[in-house]
Design a protein around this nucleic acid. Structure first.
Length: 332
DNA sequence: AACCAGGACAACCGCGTCCCC
DNA sequence: AGGGGACGCGGTTGTCCTGGT
């Protein structure tokens, strides 16, 4: 823990009377006592009523990131690391969404962890895999490059993949999902993947935000908070996979409790079974158009053999609970 | 022992969204 | 409808710590 006094910037900004910089133990006590006694209200009122010379924003940040009683302090466990990597592969830099699924952890904490530890790890990976061929700035990575990266990631324990051997080379879905995972994990380290430049906001009423992957890859989109319906949407070979909002997680948990999801989770090398355990009844797959029949059929087989490609919502929470069931990931 | 570089983490900043008037 | 304040989020910066030289 840093000593606030030593920062040299523990001063009051005269221009707006608000104190900035590190928090002193006394300030922490004031805020903690106030919050415990009065609960959360308007943050500017909290700052004023607690007798703090801080702006409300600063108080909010201090409470959320440091003082909250339910915070889990200390290093991330390997399980948490794996979860973060996995969630990031699904959600991208939506730290608050990731934090919401990691009890006791804050978005700031996860963001810092990602930017320091995990990015560094991936960077090392990249350099260890660097070859003249990989420097090509083409938007489509070669299969060799991807295969090499995947292998190295597996070797180094970033994650491992369990795939049905019969699908490992031929399934376009498998390729898309591998690409999606790689794409999000390597961002922004692999210019060839051009993940950042693919970001694109649709704005407007829908608030739809899309992360556009290179042509060969999947697309993942996430709705902004406050929107209704589904949380996000991934397009696997022309098939939309919609992710429900976190708010519906509890509801989905209830659904999961009433179902025997274990029955679908018996064979790691089975392509359909683990997926079923993840998405089971709540999956929501929407075919982009009628011409997607081949891919749709593929997905139909994956998702409980659904004939109509709209079979509920993506059970992200179940996915979090049992990441090992993910067809390509084995966080063990 | 002193210095330096890199890592870790706390905090700030700017912007978008929401909500109330 | 739209203006303004509050809030929340993601990116960035600042500061201290630690290990290497």
């Amino acid at each position: 823990m840093r000593k606030p006094e030593a920062s040299g910037k523990n001063n009051v900004n005269n221009s707006n009377k608000f104190r900035k910089g590190l928090w002193s133990p006394e300030e922490d006590d004031k805020l903690m006592n106030y919050m415990l006694n009065n609960g959360q209200g308007c943050w500017s009122d909290v700052a004023r009523n607690a007798g703090l010379q801080r702006c409300g924003k600063s108080c909010r940040l201090r409470w959320i990131n440091y003082l909250r009683p339910d915070l889990k302090r200390g290093a991330f466990s390997p399980q948490e690391e794996e979860m973060i990597i996995h969630l990031h592969s699904l959600l991208g830099n939506r730290w608050s969404q990731i934090a919401a699924r990691l009890p006791g952890r804050t978005d700031n904490e996860i963001k810092n962890f990602w930017n320091s530890t995990i990015k560094k790890r991936l960077k090392n990976l990249q350099s260890s895999n660097a070859s003249p061929n990989t420097s090509d700035s083409s938007s489509e990575p070669s299969k060799d490059v991807m295969g090499g990266l995947m292998s190295t990631m597996q070797e180094q324990g970033i994650f491992s993949m369990n795939m049905d051997p019969s699908l490992s080379s031929s399934s376009s879905l498998a390729t898309s999902m591998k690409a999606m995972i790689l794409n999000t994990m390597m961002d922004p380290l692999l210019p060839m993947l051009d993940y950042d430049h693919g970001l694109n906001m649709y704005g407007g009423a829908s608030g739809y935000e899309s992360i556009t992957a290179p042509p060969c890859m999947a697309q993942v989109g996430v709705l902004n908070s406050g929107d209704h319906g589904f949380y996000g949407e991934g397009i696997f070979e022309g098939i939309n996979v919609e992710i429900p909002p976190l708010e519906s997680v509890s509801c989905m948990e209830e659904n999961a409790k009433t179902q025997n999801i274990q029955e679908n989770n018996t064979d790691k090398y089975s392509y359909s079974s683990p997926v079923n355990s993840l998405y089971h009844k709540n999956c929501n797959i929407t075919s982009n158009n009628k011409t997607d029949n081949i891919a749709a059929d593929q997905m139909g087989n994956l998702w409980h053999g659904s004939e109509e490609l709209k079979v509920g919502e993506w059970d992200l929470e179940e996915l979090m609970k049992d990441v090992s069931a993910f067809p390509f990931l084995d966080f063990q």
